[in-house]
Amino acid sequence: MKLKEALEKKKFIVTSEVQAPMGDDDPETLVENLKRIRGRMDGVAIADVEMEGIVGDSIRTCELLNENRFDAIYQTTTRDKSRIQLQKDLNHAHDSGVENLLVFTEDYRISGDSLQETMFFHVDSGKLASVLQHLRDGRTVDGKDLPSPVDFIMGSGVESPWGKNVPKQGMNELETMREIGTGYFLTTPIFDLDQFEKFLKQIKTFNVPVIAEVMLLRNAAMARFINRHFKAGLVPDWAIQKLDKAPNKLKASVELFSDTIKGLRDLCDGVHIITLGGIDKIQPYLDAAKIR
């Protein structure tokens, strides 16, 4: 089932993400690894990636995933793109058969397959709104006609650790993204379900589906690395201690993941799984959480 259909039917959405092949990486290896989750995900996001001057072809990767019966999500940022470049990328994605777009409003993001990959996203909502409106009207930002209108099922990221105290600026940003046409909000990683429930009560007036990020943490060292290099306190101490003290690390990791998923089923509209290089190890996690 495609992401659009799953949203329309109000299913509990399950998506994940992978990194576009870099340099000599074999795209077919990516597809082979993803075959393990075929039928268990409603969409797979591919991020814009550049590392040490090498750029991953995320749009071509999206095209490859669609050819192999995965519903690809083109993940991008407006921060370093002009309106012309953003328009070019979105038009290219659409011409390649991509139906889903994912953009972000927070200033940091852990993404893709590698802990060494740091993505910084900031959405210029005015720029994005202008480009999207032109594309939806079937014209370019400089007034030229396009062969046909261009549109996407769009998700946008939201900062969720505020709990019940979402600042006015944050609420205004959510309202802006809703007006632009956001079909769902994607949160930052969720560990504290009580805090997340308070956050959801704050934003329920927007009447936009909310998909919660869930991080697949395989060990305490990985959790500490994330807190040290990405955002202090992102992974709470209790989760680190659970992974650290458990005699069976895999069992503790799977329990942490599945317990979080089970709690989220009663709170929000779906989950987005950050595997951090573990897409080929995800099956026992999906099984424990009873995902398809």
Rank of each mutant, 00 (worst) to 15 (best):
A47T: 14
Y74L: 05
R36T: 01
C62A: 06
G53T: 14
D48K: 11
R40I: 03
V44R: 00
T77Q: 10
G53R: 05
R69Q: 11
C62K: 02
D26E: 13
T76M: 07
G53F: 13
I59M: 07
Q75S: 10
T78F: 08
I46R: 04
G39Q: 05
T61W: 00
D57R: 08
L65F: 03
R38T: 02
M41Y: 09
D71T: 11
N66D: 14
V55P: 11
E52H: 14
A72E: 05
G39Y: 02
G56Q: 09
L34R: 01
F70N: 03
D26S: 07
K81H: 08
R38H: 08
E50N: 15
V44Q: 03
A47Y: 11
E63K: 14
G53M: 06
Y74P: 10
D71G: 01
V31I: 13
M41R: 00
T78K: 02
T29C: 02
E28D: 12
T78D: 12
S58R: 05
I59V: 06
Y74A: 00
L30Q: 08
E63Q: 15
V49N: 13
N66M: 02
V44M: 04
D57Q: 09
K81T: 03
T77Y: 14
D57P: 08
T78E: 09
T76G: 03
K35H: 09
V31Q: 10
E28R: 03
K81P: 04
D57A: 11
T76V: 13
P27I: 06
Q75L: 09
I73Q: 12
V31T: 03
E32I: 05
E63S: 15
R40T: 02
P27C: 06
A72H: 03
P27L: 05
G39N: 00
G53P: 04
E67K: 14
D42F: 03
M51A: 11
L65H: 01
R79V: 15
T29Q: 13
E52R: 11
